[in-house]
């Protein structure tokens, strides 16, 4: 039984908050239900629910401060949550570490750290290598192969601080590839990278897709959403809408998420772009 007087415009909202049923769906690569995260008693995320479509590329979009990074970090149990259930193929996150790869924001680490590009990529293998053991020749070879995938083989012995922003991003991507996970969560991989790197990242995303992986990407550039992604999740303090780009990436949903931030014409153009692609 549903409370039916919440009708009209509210139905959609109710639907946006649905998806909580999927929680126990063991087939979902990443199911998040009723996720609330608060900093200092102010909720950054409120009752967010989402189930990642398997084998698809999903963009997470929303205004600054909408809780996109928080959504990824809380999904990964990196920060405490006030409420909410999270499962990866039916398992709790703690039991599914091997299935999930994470690409943090580039600005989250100190690039002056004494490590080479190869060192950083090898870190993606540390879980497989296990505690106390040192990476062997095979591990290094695998890490080198990952660097090759992102076009960085020539820089493997370079200290990471001497790489450009785009190159650093590629190193982070190669590290995630080395993890050989089933689900990939990426926090703004396209932020501040050059055009060549952007193409290289898109190639990697396509490759992951071809291998049947599920990828979620926090993304800022609305114009490229219909070009790069098949699905979209609109976030603003909670989930506003989610679904295939062709159906969900509409002017209406953009307006709902960003409000006055986007001029009407821009919205219409973005909506058109989505339709053209569809």
């Amino acid at each position: 039984m549903k409370i039916d007087h919440v009708s009209g415009g509210a139905t959609k909202i109710a639907l946006a908050e649905a998806g909580r049923r999927d929680v126990l769906d063991p087939g979902s690569p990443l199911a998040v239900a009723g996720l609330t995260v608060a900093y200092d008693r102010k909720p950054v995320l409120w009752n967010a629910s989402f189930s990642a479509p398997e084998g698809e590329l999903t963009a997470i979009v929303g205004p600054n401060g909408a809780g996109k990074s928080t959504f990824l970090k809380a999904s990964l149990s990196l920060i405490p949550r006030l409420s909410g259930e999270i499962s990866v193929y039916g398992k709790p996150m703690e039991a599914a570490r091997g299935d999930v790869a994470y690409v943090p924001q580039r600005s989250s680490v100190d690039w002056d750290f004494p490590a080479t590009a190869l060192d950083v990529v090898t870190m993606g293998l540390y879980r497989q290598i296990g505690w106390f053991r040192w990476p062997g020749r095979k591990d290094r070879e695998r890490a080198r192969a990952m660097l090759e995938l992102v076009g960085m083989e020539a820089f493997s012995d370079r200290q990471i601080g001497q790489l450009s922003g785009g190159q650093q991003q590629r190193v982070f991507l190669a590290r995630a590839l080395a993890q050989d996970a089933r689900v990939y969560l990426m926090d703004e991989p396209f932020a501040g990278v050059d055009a060549a790197t952007e193409r290289a990242i898109v190639d990697v995303l396509r490759k992951l897709l071809a291998e049947g992986k599920t990828v979620l990407v926090v993304h800022h550039d609305l114009e490229t959403v219909p070009l790069y992604f098949s699905h979209v999740l609109f976030l603003n303090a909670g989930t506003v809408a989610s679904g295939p780009v062709t159906e969900t990436f509409t002017a209406e949903n953009l307006q709902k998420t960003y409000g006055g931030r986007l001029a009407a014409t821009q919205l219409a153009a973005l909506g058109e772009a989505a339709k053209v692609r569809g």
Binding site: I13, R41, V44, G67, N236, A237, Q255, G260
Partner: peptide, 18 residues
């Protein structure tokens, strides 16, 4: 939720939202 759609900026700045 309707109010958030009208004013997304204020929504995530308002501690009492929801």
């Amino acid at each position: 939720n309707l109010w958030r759609e009208d004013c997304p900026d204020e929504a995530h700045a308002l501690a009492d939202w929801s």
